[in-house]
Design a protein around this nucleic acid. Sequence first.
RNA 1: GCGGUUGUGGCGAAGUGGUUAACGCACCGGAUUGUGGCUCCGGCACUCGUGGGUUCAAGUCCCAUCAACCGCCCCA
Length: 428
Amino acid sequence: MLTGAPRGTKDILPDQVGHWQRIEAVIRQICREYGYAEIRTPVFEHREVFHRGVGETTDIVQKETYDFHDRGNRELTLRPEGTAPVVRALLEHKLYAGPLPVKMYYVGPMFRFGRPQMGRQRQFHQFGIEVFGAAGAGADAEVISLAMDFYRRLGLLDLTLLVNSIGCPVCRPAHRQALCDFFGPRATELCEDCRNRLDRNPLRVLDCKQERCQELSRGAPATVDHLCPACAEHFAAVRELLEAAGVAYTVDPGLVRGLDYYTRTAFEIISRDIGAQASVGGGGRYDHLVETLGGPPVPGIGFGLGLERLVLVMENRGLLAVTAEPARDVFVAMAGDGTGPVAFGLVQALRARGIVVETDCLARSLKAQMKTADRFQAPVVVIIGEAELARGVVTVRLMQTGEQQEVPLAGALEYVGGILNERKKCAG
RNA sequence: GCGGUUGUGGCGAAGUGGUUAACGCACCGGAUUGUGGCUCCGGCACUCGUGGGUUCAAGUCCCAUCAACCGCCCCA
């Protein structure tokens, strides 16, 4: 093959795109209702945005970013996630100076260089929301509830919501020390990755997937047990609000998440029917990210979810019916010399009235045109042949009954419009 | 980045090294010549992901490469 989409990328073809549009419509609707405004940021940013924002030590930055130099020798990176760019925009336009909180959402492609497999692509799409300037548990509860409400509206009622609190700079040192004390004596038994993690970010040992590491993690000091009073209170408040809203959740002390900027609340939504890539969305609070990127102290919280995985889950559950070819109101068929211009004139006149019209542009036989009209489920077919042309009329055929009526060409527009209105009334 | 499975027409799918690579679906055309479904008939692949190699002979064996999928890792 001469061409092929690059590894890890996919075309979303016309027969699939309906699914996406349906999901995007729900996104727009729910965000409007919850008061989130859309923001569209560039797909690439200065590399620093992600290195400082997402965290130098994260896997995403260390081995998954698409880094490149442009012709002006700028160091740029294709965005691997949506939060850091939104924070950058918040700072650049000083959106934090306006009324708080600032609530925004985004939908768009993200890029991560990993080995593709089911539910993991190099270009994928995320929907995410961010709230800035709201430190209270109410924001956490709203963000999580919006996420679960979104899934619910799409028919996904039984996803698992895991929540945890990973503390803040006040409580983290003590917890970090506790973890080092706990794992230190048995460091040699940990996997290689975890031995590294022990130095850099011992928290991450907790959600290592290696069996041995999981065993060793049993009984490890949990973040929730080492929260400072403020964090503990915040977490309790979040849980109380979730319960008040009837949002079911499970506290998972091992939930850490792979982006460095999270503080306090971290959460993840998982589904077991998309293979190894169980996570369909996640997020958390990031109270110091704005400062990290050079801004004033503005707390934040948000989530992001993967649209491809969402589509997968929905497909597996039969929630995405095959999108049928959109039906046409009218098919204009033509047969014979000189009928083309007259037919096309009628087609455009009908379209100008908002009627959905299809016609033939392959010079096919009338029989083939009728077949096509049938496939498009057009209730009305207008036939313009040489015989009609000569007499200044057109044949209007009602496909359901097979009735045909000749009407003057000049009155065809009114006549067809009338039939369609009539049908609409009956249907309504 | 590591390990494994797979790769035949638009899709699905036969094809134990040996004549012109089945079949199904889809698509296109036709069935006394200007009309839809079904049925029937016909059409549609210089070619087996790509590139090498072995052999008298390869879709069938070997190697490489690319890609998809599965697991690890990571996460969406």
